[in-house]
Design a protein around this nucleic acid. Sequence first.
DNA 1: CATTATAATTTGTATATACAAGTTATGCAA
DNA 2: TTGCATAACTTGTATATACAAATTATAATG
Lengths: 238, 238
Amino acid sequence: MKNKYVVIFNKLVKKIQQGVFSAGETLPSEHELTAQFDTSRETIRKALNLLAQNGYIQKVRGKGSVVLERNKFKFPVSGLTSFKELADQMGQEVKTSVHELTIVTQASHIRRQLGCPEDAKLWRLIRSREIDGERIILDKDYIREDLIPDITKETAEQSLYHYIEEELGLEISFAKKEIVVEDITDEDRELLDLNGHQQVVVIRSYVYLADTTAFQFTESRHRPDKFQFVDFARRTKA
Amino acid sequence: MKNKYVVIFNKLVKKIQQGVFSAGETLPSEHELTAQFDTSRETIRKALNLLAQNGYIQKVRGKGSVVLERNKFKFPVSGLTSFKELADQMGQEVKTSVHELTIVTQASHIRRQLGCPEDAKLWRLIRSREIDGERIILDKDYIREDLIPDITKETAEQSLYHYIEEELGLEISFAKKEIVVEDITDEDRELLDLNGHQQVVVIRSYVYLADTTAFQFTESRHRPDKFQFVDFARRTKA
DNA sequence: CATTATAATTTGTATATACAAGTTATGCAA
DNA sequence: TTGCATAACTTGTATATACAAATTATAATG
């Protein structure tokens, strides 16, 4: 939060969200922003590149930083964001139920994928998410116990990521995700209001800390009619 | 292709893919790379940041650039990549059939979303993709005729993006995407081998040029059992 | 008025330096 | 040998300069 360019990035995001700069307009030039924030042009450019990466602006040479329309598909649900953070952003009323919170010593295939020691214990956490009175999402987590030692029912109901980042001081950095569609299981039938659906959308993710250690594997199972994934993508120049 | 840091980025990607640098190892330090490529440290850092953004490496302060395992879920299908490019990457044998290639003057809602003039014409392009003898994907495109004037059946069968970028010299820059699951339509029934499936995964995208003009709206409809979306995501620091 | 050439503005690239912060290696001392 | 302080190494941030390339504004010209 103290890095100059991150601070500037966040201030500009806020201004865009508040409509101080609206879609189609250009931001003040790098030269002007340099003066406004009393910094160097390169620092401003780092902040602007963050904006561009996250789909807030498009930089056009000779022209300026054009603010992009951000609501073609509501909010971007992609990226690495916890369920709590998403729910807050969407303003949805959400209820989380913890169905299981145990330590497992089996699940060797997951342990192998997470690359943790053979004798390491794993948290097994199963939660359902209820929106507008319907249980729509089933989250199954496997979390390394040696890295995140204390998980209570309360933290599992609230925000796990907040606990990991703020309480434990660990830096969650990146994730590898897969989205597929699969047939429902008995567990889905028991813990979700499937409403007749025979398949679910499954998001599997491995989540990593900044030092490249994987600490979590998540399987998030969504009822198809309530599932939406929104993404902003840039073309990587060959 | 002539930018120094992009050239270095591509060379390093190739070396990682070839296994010259393998997962878990660190790349040569920025200092060493600076010497190897006879350039400045900032230029090297731009190349390394591209690698980090695309999930090839994780930079760890004090340690180095750690090469990441890249095959937890095969290839990354996210981003802004044409079907042809994906198929080439996967080494799949694919057949594209063009079912419709016409100019439409209606579809005002799409025209509005694309933000093009009221009298602008749109290409309407419908293609099915056949993999291993099954028609699995149905692509429905709307493309601005004033920007991409000549589309032939042949270019539609081969690579549209290659034509747009290489022949027309336009720069495809970013896209806004949405993934949902929907019930099948009569058109799906006619043009796909649904194999009993009653729903399809629908990817809707608006695609933009570098000057922020939207030129394409695509609806890509996938048979659920053959659908896979793979993504690499980084956590944006608050 | 319209067209064209020129200048000013704006972003992109490449390079350089200084210091901060985290990790690893080294060497000294007990 | 062990432990600890120190040094060396590596990435992160902030700043500065010079020039290139694209766009826009201005002025000159017919």
